[in-house]
Simulated assay, not measured.
Amino acid sequence: MRLVLSLALAALIGLLAPSVASAADVAHGEQVFSSNCAACHMGGGNVVNAQRTLKQEDLQAYLANYGDGHEEAIAYQVTNGKNGMAAFGTRLSADEIADVAAYVEAQAARGWA
């Protein structure tokens, strides 16, 4: 009986561990943003196209599928780029992109204040 319970517990931990490990890290996202994004997007702005900032209303207006999944839409943009924005999918890991997307969304929700 102990063996069955131990195996069940191990399986449950194995199922839960990836979701805990894959949770976005906003603090790390801030570091990634500072190193890779701030040159063009300092304070949530946009030096290439001043009308397409990282403020929530602009993200809603200009990012495809932002209304369906904010962080996923941001991660897609970071990964693939578009128009004047470079693609970072080959420069940043998937975890770094998820973290920076979480940071951008958190800042957008606070109005970049």
Rank of each mutant, 00 (worst) to 15 (best):
R2L: 09
G29F: 00
D95C: 01
E57S: 10
A61F: 06
V32A: 03
V47S: 14
A86R: 08
E57T: 14
Q107N: 12
A11K: 05
A24N: 01
L15Y: 13
I97Y: 02
A11E: 07
L3W: 05
S93F: 03
Q31G: 03
L63M: 04
M85S: 03
G84N: 04
Q31P: 08
A109W: 08
Q107M: 15
L5F: 14
A108P: 09
A109P: 05
N80S: 09
L12H: 00
H41N: 06
A39H: 07
R91E: 13
R91P: 02
I74H: 11
Q107H: 06
H41C: 02
M1G: 12
D99E: 07
G43V: 08
V32G: 06
G89P: 00
H28G: 08
Q31S: 10
E105G: 07
A23C: 09
P18M: 03
A39P: 06
H70G: 03
Q31F: 02
Y76I: 04
G84P: 10
E72N: 07
V26P: 11
V4I: 14
L59F: 12
R2Y: 15
Y66M: 03
L7S: 11
G89D: 05
Y103T: 00
K55I: 05
A50F: 12
A23E: 14
G69L: 01
A75V: 00
P18H: 00
L5G: 04
A87K: 04
T53D: 11
E105K: 11
L12N: 03
E30W: 00
N49M: 13
A61K: 13
A86V: 01
V104C: 09
G84T: 05
R110Y: 05
M42L: 08
A108D: 12
A106W: 10
A102D: 11
A109F: 07
G45H: 05
T90C: 06
E30P: 04
G111W: 06
A17S: 15
E30L: 09
A87I: 04
A94D: 15
A101N: 07
A21K: 03
V47A: 15
E71A: 08
L54P: 11
A61L: 15
G111D: 09
G111V: 10
A17T: 15
S35L: 01
K82I: 02
D58G: 07
Y66K: 02
A24E: 11
N36K: 01
A24R: 02
N46W: 11
Q107V: 07
A75T: 00
A38S: 13
G69N: 13
A94I: 02
Y66V: 00
E71Q: 09
H28P: 01
A11G: 09
A108K: 01
L5I: 11
A113M: 07
A17R: 05
G43Y: 03
A27P: 10
L54Y: 08
S19D: 14
G69I: 01
E71V: 01
A11C: 14
R91D: 15
Y62D: 14
E71W: 02
I13G: 12
G89S: 02
Y76L: 05
L12V: 10
I13V: 15
V32N: 13
N65G: 00
L59R: 03
Q31C: 01
G84V: 05
S22H: 08
A50P: 13
L15F: 12
